[in-house]
Structure formats: C-alpha cells, structure tokens
Simulated assay, not measured.
Amino acid sequence: MTRLRCDGYVLPSRRSRRGRAVSELLVGVLIVSIVLLGLLYLWTEDDKPTEFGIDVSPYRVANAVYAHNLLERYRLAVMNYIDMYGQLPGDVGAQANGTGRGDWRLERQYGEGERALADMADASVVPRGTLRVRGRELELAWVSLVADERELTGANYFVLRGFNRDEARAMDWKFDDGRNNDGDILYAVRGEDAVDLYMRLELDN
C-alpha cells in the first residue's frame, strides 16, 4: 500500500479511503433499514384504517383481503366443476332422493361437504389434501336460517371455524354489509378473538 507523507502526516491511499466510504455507507443503510422496520411495525400494530370505520389494524385488513381472494378462487373452482359435470361437487342428493338429480345442497348428514372437496380434487380444480385459509380448515356446508322450527332460507357456505375475529370484521366491512348476522358474509363469535366465519357460495345454477 502506498502512502504519501506531507509535513509529518501520513495520508491514506485512495484504496483505504474507498474502503472506509463503503463501510460508512453500509452502516448508514443498516441504520435506515432498522428505522424503517420499526416504523412499519408501529404502523401495522397501532394505526387504524379510517375507511372502514372499525378499529382493525392494516395487517388484519390485508389478511382479510387475502382470505377473501382465496375463498373467491375456491368459489370459481366450484363453478368450474359445475361447468364440467353439470352438478354440485359432492351432491349425493341424486342417489338419496331417487330423482336422478342432485338437490344442490351440501348436507352434513350425507357427508357431502367432505365429498365436494374430494370431487374437486379428483377433477383437478383444487389441490389434493386439506384446503386451508389462514391456517383454518375449509368446509363446505348447507346452512339454514330457521325460525319457529321452520326454515326461512338457506344456502351453501364456505365455513372457517376459529377464524380471527378482527379479520372477519374487516372482511365483512370491505366485501359485504358490515353486519355479522346478515348478507353474504356471516360470523358467529366463538371466543374472545375467534369466530366461525361463513361466506355464501353463490351458484349460477
């Protein structure tokens, strides 16, 4: 390494000055990254979105959007199956009622929800194995609204048990009517932070 001597002082070479500049730059980048990560953490934990009018963090809202988009993909998979086979996957109503047609209900007493997922996997419209959304196992079931022991209405629903409560609220506000007991997205409180989430499976049959 060459050094220059001037009035008793040794001046560093260009190579050593370049090495010091790169290390100082790396330290600066590291400090800025730590500050940005800290700000991002505070923003996702503390800030509340104002466009929904509910106190849910943006992190939970993003998870709700992800879960809704995944459920929409599964809904399209059901529609693809119907287009290919002309009936609802897993619907054994044709055998049960002897009409030769399904009843378009995924009824639990016949285990049709489990059969529906297996039928869709056999048709290659969904991957094989347990389907999960945000870590919760996906179910398909016919859900009835009953009053005075009389069925008022019913529909096929995607069901996610033990879903995060804030994410269910965010999904309901963003994609439905914001009420947990009405519309296409419903949820029933299961615990302090968990709900059973129901999303209506819209069928164009």
Rank of each mutant, 00 (worst) to 15 (best):
A64I: 04
G53P: 03
V27G: 08
E114M: 10
S144R: 13
C6K: 10
D184M: 13
R200W: 04
R75P: 00
Y9V: 14
H68F: 10
V189M: 08
M120V: 00
E139I: 02
Y157C: 01
M120F: 00
A62K: 10
Y59N: 13
S57M: 02
M171I: 02
E45P: 00
S57C: 07
R18L: 14
V125Y: 08
P49H: 03
L186F: 12
I34Q: 13
I34D: 07
D91R: 02
A67K: 12
V125Q: 13
F175S: 06
M199A: 14
V92W: 05
R108C: 00
V195C: 08
R169Q: 12
R136G: 02
L39H: 02
L36H: 04
K48E: 06
G98V: 02
R115T: 03
L26A: 05
L71A: 06
A155G: 04
T130P: 04
R101Y: 04
G102R: 00
Q109Y: 03
V10G: 13
A116G: 01
V133D: 01
V143F: 13
R14E: 14
L203P: 00
L26V: 07
R3K: 02
Y110Q: 06
M79K: 06
G8A: 06
R136E: 13
R5Q: 07
G191F: 01
M120E: 00
L186G: 11
R165Q: 08
G93W: 01
V78P: 08
D55V: 01
Y59T: 14
Y41G: 14
V65F: 10
E24H: 07
H68L: 03
A170P: 00
V195A: 12
L25G: 12
V10F: 10
W104K: 06
E151G: 02
V78F: 12
Y9L: 13
R73H: 09
A147F: 11
D196A: 15
P127N: 10
D172Q: 04
R75Y: 05
M84G: 08
G154F: 06
N180E: 15
W104L: 05
V78N: 09
P12L: 03
V78M: 07
D176V: 01
A155M: 04
R60G: 05
S23V: 06
V189G: 03
D172A: 04
W43V: 07
G111K: 11
F163E: 04
A141H: 05
L145A: 13
D148R: 11
Q95W: 10
A21C: 08
L11F: 15
V56Q: 09
S16T: 09
A62P: 01
L37W: 15
V189Q: 10
G191K: 01
C6E: 06
K174T: 09
R190L: 15
L76D: 14
I82L: 11
Y9T: 11
G102E: 00
S33G: 04
M1C: 03
K48L: 11
D184R: 15
A94K: 11
A121G: 09
F175Y: 12
D182E: 10
R20V: 12
L131F: 02
S57K: 09
S16C: 03
V133K: 05
G183V: 03
A118R: 12
V10I: 14
R18N: 08
R60P: 02
Q87M: 05
V10Q: 11
Q109G: 02
A121T: 10
S16Q: 05
G191S: 04
G100D: 00
V195W: 09
D148N: 09
